[in-house]
C-alpha cells in the first residue's frame, strides 16, 4: 500500500508533464496577437513578438511573450552573438504573470548573427529556447 501511495503521485506528476509537453507542442498563436514567432522546446513553447516588429541594430526594443507548458517560476531573456562570444550591454527587465510576460531594455548593438534566448525555469525543470536571426 505504501509503495502504491508513493507511486500514485509520481505517476500523476509524470502524466501531467507529458500532457503539458503535449500542450506545449500544440501551442497556438495567442488569439489576440497578429504576427509573432514560435520556439518549441521539449517542455515549453514560447510565442514572442518584438516592438518594433523588426528588431533594429543599435536601438532598444522590447518583447512580449506567451508560454505553453507546465507552470513557470522564472523567465530570463538575453541576447548572445555566438560568432563574437558576447551578449548585450543591457540587462532586460522581465515581468511574468502566469504564462505571459514582457521583457524591456533589450538591445542588439551590432549587425550580425544574434541569438534571442528564453531561459525558462519551473517545477518541471529548466529549458533554454533560442531563436536565431541575422541583423544587417
Amino acid at each position: 500500500m505504501a509503495r502504491r501511495r508513493q507511486r500514485g503521485p509520481a505517476f500523476a506528476a509524470a502524466l501531467a508533464l507529458v500532457l503539458a509537453a503535449a500542450g506545449a507542442n500544440a501551442c497556438e498563436r495567442p488569439q489576440d496577437w497578429t504576427g509573432g514567432s514560435k520556439i518549441a522546446g521539449k517542455t515549453w513553447t514560447v510565442w514572442w513578438q518584438s516592438a518594433p516588429a523588426a528588431i533594429p541594430v543599435g536601438a532598444h526594443f522590447s518583447l512580449r511573450f506567451r508560454l505553453c507548458g507546465p507552470p513557470v517560476r522564472q523567465v530570463k531573456v538575453r541576447g548572445w552573438m555566438p560568432d563574437h562570444r558576447h551578449g548585450m550591454n543591457y540587462r532586460p527587465g522581465v515581468t511574468l504573470a502566469g504564462r505571459s510576460g514582457t521583457a524591456a531594455g533589450l538591445m542588439f548593438h551590432m549587425p550580425g548573427r544574434w541569438q534571442l534566448i528564453f531561459d525558462i525555469a519551473g517545477a518541471a525543470g529548466r529549458e533554454k529556447l533560442t531563436a536565431e536571426m541575422v541583423l544587417e
Binding site: 532598444h60 543591457y90 524591456a104 531594455g105
Partner: peptide, 12 residues
C-alpha cells in the same frame, strides 16, 4: 531613460 535603467556592468 530605458538605457540608464537597463545598462549592465560587467568585468569586460
Amino acid at each position: 531613460a530605458v538605457k540608464t535603467r537597463h545598462v549592465r556592468l560587467a568585468h569586460s
